[in-house]
Structures are given as C-alpha cells and as structure tokens.
Write a protein that binds this DNA or RNA. Sequence first.
DNA 1: ACCTGAACACCGTTCAAGT
DNA 2: ACCTGAACACCGTTCAAGT
Lengths: 223, 223
Amino acid sequence: MPAPKTAATRRPKPKTARKQAAASYHHGDLPAALRGAAESILLARGAADVSLREVARAAGVSHAAPYRHFASREALLASLAAAGFERLKATLVACASRQPRERLIRLGEAYVGFAIAEPAMFRLMFGPELAKPAFPELKAAADQTLAVLRDALVALGASPPATGEAISAWALVHGLAELILDDRIEEHAGSEAPMLTVRRAVEIFADGLAARVTRDAGKSSKR
Amino acid sequence: MPAPKTAATRRPKPKTARKQAAASYHHGDLPAALRGAAESILLARGAADVSLREVARAAGVSHAAPYRHFASREALLASLAAAGFERLKATLVACASRQPRERLIRLGEAYVGFAIAEPAMFRLMFGPELAKPAFPELKAAADQTLAVLRDALVALGASPPATGEAISAWALVHGLAELILDDRIEEHAGSEAPMLTVRRAVEIFADGLAARVTRDAGKSSKR
DNA sequence: ACCTGAACACCGTTCAAGT
DNA sequence: ACCTGAACACCGTTCAAGT
C-alpha cells in the first residue's frame, strides 16, 4: 500500500470557483494547481525535492498529466522562478528615498531581505539547478533588477549609463545575500544584525563611488 | 542490453602502481578512484549529473560498493568540494603584491578566475546542492578564504579585525563570480573583459575603504 | 575487511489508449 | 482537448550473503 501521502493535504478555495471543477480538474486550472503545489514544496523543502510526480499527486492528477502544461520538470521550476523575479522587482521598485545614498542602501536591504524571506526561491532563481539559457524569460526578469540599481546609481552621480557601477553594486548585495544564506556571516559579524552588515557594505561602496565622481569631475574641469 | 557506457572510458595510471590492483580494486584505492570518477563527471556535466551508480560503474565496482567509503552521494560531493576549497585557498594565498591595493585587486581577480576556470566546482562549493551544516569541513575551508581577505584589508588600513570589511569584499567578488557564471555581465559590460569589471569594482570598494579610513583618522585626531 | 546481488521505494519522460 | 496507465530507463539506499 503506497499511500498517496500528500494527496489529501491541500484543499484550496473551499467555497469559491466551484462551477463544475469539484473532484476533477477537468475544467479547473491545472497549471495553476501544479504551480501552487510545486511552490509549497519548494518553500518547505527546497528545489531538489520538487518532483513532478509528487506535484501531480498533490494536484490529484496522474503523473503524466503535468506534461500537458509544462514541457518538463525544469520548465515548471522556471515558471516558479519567473514569478519570484516579479516579486523581487516589485520589492525593489517600491524602495524610494529622497536621499540617493539612502535609497541605494534601502535597495540593498530589500534585496537581501528577499533572499532571507524566501531562501529556497532565491536559490532557485540564481542557482545552478535551472539551465538559464533555455529560459530567456528569466534573463529578462533579472535585467530589470539591474535597471533599478542603475537608476539609483545615476542618481548618486555615476555617469550614465553606469552599467559597470550597477553590476558592481548588484554583485555586492547579491554576494551578501548568498553569504548570509550560507550562514557565513552571522558567525563572523558577532551580534551585528545581517542588515547592518548590508548597510555598512553599501556605505563603503557609495563612498568609493563618491570619491570617483569627485575625482572625475576635478579631472574634467582642470583639463 | 544496457551497455556500461562510461565504464571503459577511463584508464588512469597505465604503468604505475600495479602491484596486484590490476583488474580488481580489492587492494587498490577505491575512495580515490570514486573521487576521480565523480570529479570528471562534475567537471564535464555538473553536480546534478553525478550519480553514485554511474561513479561506481566508472570505477568498475558494484553500485553498493561506494557505501563502504562514503556515507552518501552527498558525502562524496562534499569531499570533492573540500578539495576545491583547498585549491581556491592555495590560489588566493599565492596572490602577493607590494601595494596593498593592487593585492586586493589581484585577490578578486583570482577568486573570479577560479570560478570561471571551474564553474561546476565553484557552484558545488557555494551552491545549494550541499547541505553545508552537515559538513563542517566545508565551513572551515570557507573561513580560510575570509582570513586571506581580512589580511589584505588590514594592510589597506582597515582597523583590525576588519571582519565586516572582509565580508563585504568577499561578497563583492563572490557576487561578481556568480553573475559572471550566469552570463549576466558579458551582455551588459559591452566588450569589456570580465576581469576588467572585477578590477573596477574592487577599485571602487578600495576607494570607499580609503575614504572611511581617512575620515576615522580625522575624527579620532580632532577629538 | 571489503564487495556483490537482490530488493525497495522512488524518479523523469514517452506513448498508446481512453473520455 | 485533456487525462490515464503502462512501460522504459534510470535513481539512492539497505542488507543479507559471499570471499
């Protein structure tokens, strides 16, 4: 007796949307149900534990059914990652501040905060489990992250398009997020909260950028 | 007919060490043979494709034999990652320069260079496939990376122990390495070589650190 | 002490067949 | 149009049994 285990675990929308999609997904939204089941496994146990067969069981369909809607296990995960990028972008866009320097710090904190709030999702979005060249949507979504950072850096005085500076700033906060998720910071930072480490790191970077801007301005006005 | 495929692919040490370990590993070094087979699959096809059964086939033993020497598939991968950290550490320690600033840049380039030279290994070392809390040796190895960077930063004028600065510098170069491996830099940096991006990023960071050092010195001397 | 063979409980993916 | 069931070729891990 194999026992379906998780099959009876989820019962969403107990009252809404029950035209004729009661016990069969024949007219229900199977793609959404599969994404939902996959995401709940992702958040609870990580990307490696998301199997198409378990997802199908959780959605109450046969293990072959997902292939009507997703080309592969990887395609389903890519669909989750794309949604994750959307959420990350929304979080970053919402970071406003009158002082450009403070805005950059807030952006860094928001980026790292997203990674801390959803570590499995963050790792899926940036980790090696997804062969990203096959999913151009993911690259496009990541580019929007870069665009937000670039705007913030131009506001800080970097000369447009400021792509190099934006990449560096992105690398800094991305690296901080990775190191924090790997628990490589708390041990070393003493009792200092991770977000304070982020703030200090971005401050150093902003100072360096300011020094560069001042120097370039001096150079161009003296010559 | 399943065909052993990779079983006949590798034939190392054709002349040395053939006391009595010719066709049977009974007296050979099976752990080393397993590590070797696993590493060659890792480099060629990534960590996800390293299966214990294929590794066993490549080493010419039954699929249960590896369990005499490694507790699990993950333990074998952790053993590879530990070796990778050793190589990374050796690379960093070899980065010397009379100017502290140039040394920090060299360290960053070496770190990113390691990631570019061995992307699958780098991702294994820092990615989510290994549950690192279970392998303290990996954390210890990573700490040595931090120690090298901290020394370089103290030489640059950061006040000892300079842990916060070291973490920030680590995050910066680590993030650059990750973004480069994900091809998120070449598209944006134009024709600029990745290493030039690294140099510029570390320069900005070093400038910010210098500004901070100067400011702190001024504050303590004026009060 | 070290390795094998069979067994168990899983996978991803494909495909004919059902409704 | 959408889903099922059986099938194929794999996995990791365990364990009695062999030498």
